[in-house]
Design a protein around this nucleic acid. Structure first.
Lengths: 129, 129
DNA sequence: TATTGTACCCCTACATCAAAGGGTACATAT
DNA sequence: ATATGTACCCTTTGATGTAGGGGTACAATA
């Protein structure tokens, strides 16, 4: 588990942490069930804020790459290697591309699309949800 | 064709112009085929920039509320009244709500959804379109 | 008691975007 | 010559969102 962080890189720190852990899992350097360093430990090693590591861990657990067992620590998910191939971001881009394309086809302005998007994201969607 | 503009209103000026013209058409105060004031004329009357009026006219023409006939001026669209009921913004909100809801259902972060949206809007969507 | 993940609060720096205006120019048609 | 819609260039202003950090606190457990 050797992770290197470049603060000068324009890739966000939490993304770098995520990618490197994913890479280690994919390469077989981290086997399912093995323990990962604690959030505080890793943040100390990398000399970055613990909240940044916590964010990376939180997203990795959502993606089922790791498993957190409360106070007992964090471990590699049993199905981690397979789940590394799932890319939610690509899924999001694909879904949104379809939706946006249909809106552009009826000549909606980029501004209008952005505006509608903001309304939905801010919970001011249709029928005041 | 009496249009009143409130600069203090938080509704954008071009939106106010659009809404009031739509309102006049819906109420039957502007019959199909009748002429609208020119962009320069209306911007002068309202004491706002001509580009603001031009933007309102451009969008109204897209929505087929008005028709611009080049140098001859701008006129109310033959089917204006019916087209006033079509709300593209609602369409956009509805479409995006569906897409975003499915993404939230797989626990995508708001940040990730916004990020994917930005990629698509900036033409960096899937497969380098 | 110390460590675990987690959940709050507040803050700064930075980027992006929308709205609006200022200005200039163009081809077309009367 | 004049008025039409239109298409560019530039600018300022304000709002919003992200990344990251600082700090504090909590229940559970070994």
């Amino acid at each position: 588990m050797e992770i290197e962080i470049n603060i000068d890189d324009d890739v966000p720190l939490f993304t770098q942490v995520m990618e490197q852990i994913k890479q280690a899992v994919s390469a077989g350097h981290c086997l399912p069930g093995s323990a990962l360093p604690s959030i505080r430990q890793l943040s100390s090693d990398l000399e970055i804020n613990s909240k940044t590591v916590a964010k990376a861990y939180r997203l990795l657990e959502r993606d089922q790459i790791i498993q957190t067992k409360g106070h007992r620590g964090t471990f590699v998910h049993p199905n981690a290697k397979a789940n590394c191939t799932i890319n939610l971001q690509e899924r999001a881009v694909a879904d949104l591309t379809r939706a946006i394309q249909t809106l552009k086809n009826v000549n909606l302005t980029d501004s209008e699309i952005r505006n509608a998007f903001a309304l939905v994201m801010n919970g001011q969607g249709p029928k005041g949800q």
